[in-house]
Amino acid sequence: MRIQRALARAGVASRRRAEDLVAAGRVHVNGAVAATGQSVDTDADSITVDGTPVVQPVGFHWIVLNKPSGVLTTKSDPAGRRTVFDLVPPRPGLTYVGRLDYMTEGVLILTTDGEAAHKLTHPSGEVERTYVATVRGDGPAAVRAGRNGVELEDGWMQPMDIAARNISRGLWELEVTIAEGRTREIRRFCAALDLAVERLVRTRFGPVSLGKLPSGATRPLTGRERDIILAIAQ
């Protein structure tokens, strides 16, 4: 397989980031600097990144975390803030599928299958994601306008589905389903609809729903969830 695919499978980086690592001369195969697109045998070749051996996983691990607010979706933070990796059991090659911003809660899938993680988050995959935003503003007007789509700084955004439920005077739960994952997309969508977001929760990613999983807790994917996820990632 190609060197960048081997690095992605091992959870070192996405394929695009792996290509950058190879181009920077940070990857070695059997002691020699690797070349972009080079073929490797992961069973026989010794692969290192910055001198650290790359270990290919034997079988892949999949879990879902109910990410709390105030936790970063990143491997580490120079400022010492909590990350999602502080909340899950340590496992070599573990990476996340679809970043959630610092204040957003809910479904976050983690896996040791780096290649599948890349495919699931690539725009061509069109994996559905559902969010519930607690917002202040005119919920019905936002739904009417939102169904027609809005122009964001990075292009047009039109949800697959949108609905609002009144909680109290001026306070609504806005449920939005999309099939892409641009940075802070739901928050920017709400701002474009003149809604102030008080809380944002991702309740579903593909076949994986939040259910009653407590905040900060994890569970393994069910067999059905895993089968569907792997079919999407083919």
Rank of each mutant, 00 (worst) to 15 (best):
L87H: 09
L87I: 14
L87A: 12
L87Y: 12
V88Y: 14
V88M: 14
V88W: 10
V88D: 08
V88C: 12
V88N: 10
P89C: 07
P89G: 11
P89M: 09
P90D: 11
P90W: 03
P90V: 04
P90A: 15
P90M: 01
R91T: 14
R91S: 08
R91N: 07
R91Q: 14
R91A: 11
P92Y: 10
G93R: 11
G93C: 12
G93I: 08
L94H: 04
L94Y: 06
L94G: 06
T95M: 14
T95V: 15
T95L: 13
Y96A: 11
Y96Q: 04
Y96F: 15
V97S: 04
V97A: 07
V97L: 08
G98F: 00
G98E: 06
G98I: 00
R99F: 10
R99A: 10
L100V: 06
L100G: 04
L100S: 03
L100M: 11
L100Y: 05
D101T: 06
D101A: 11
D101G: 09
Y102Q: 12
Y102G: 04
Y102T: 08
Y102H: 15
M103T: 12
M103Y: 11
T104S: 15
T104G: 01
T104L: 02
E105F: 05
E105N: 06
E105Q: 15
G106Q: 05
G106M: 06
G106C: 09
V107D: 03
V107M: 07
V107S: 08
V107E: 02
V107W: 01
L108E: 06
I109F: 03
I109A: 03
I109R: 02
I109D: 01
I109L: 15
L110W: 03
L110A: 05
T111V: 08
T111L: 03
T112Q: 09
T112D: 03
T112H: 09
T112L: 10
D113L: 07
G114P: 08
G114V: 04
G114S: 06
G114M: 07
E115K: 00
E115Y: 04
E115H: 07
A116D: 02
A116H: 10
A116M: 10
A116Y: 00
A116I: 05
A116L: 09
A116N: 05
A116Q: 05
A116R: 07
A117C: 10
A117Y: 02
A117K: 01
A117R: 01
A117I: 04
H118W: 12
H118I: 00
H118A: 15
H118G: 05
K119I: 13
K119G: 00
L120C: 05
L120E: 02
T121A: 13
H122I: 02
H122Q: 14
P123Y: 12
P123Q: 08
P123C: 11
P123V: 09
S124Y: 01
S124T: 14
S124I: 02
S124K: 15
G125M: 13
G125S: 15
G125V: 00
G125Q: 14
E126S: 10
E126H: 15
E126V: 00
V127A: 01
R129Y: 01
R129C: 01
T130Q: 15
T130M: 09
T130K: 07
T130H: 08
Y131R: 01
Y131V: 07
Y131W: 11
V132Q: 10
V132S: 06
A133W: 07
A133Q: 11
A133C: 11
T134A: 14
T134K: 15
T134D: 12
T134Y: 13
R136S: 12
R136W: 13
R136A: 14
G137H: 04
G137N: 02
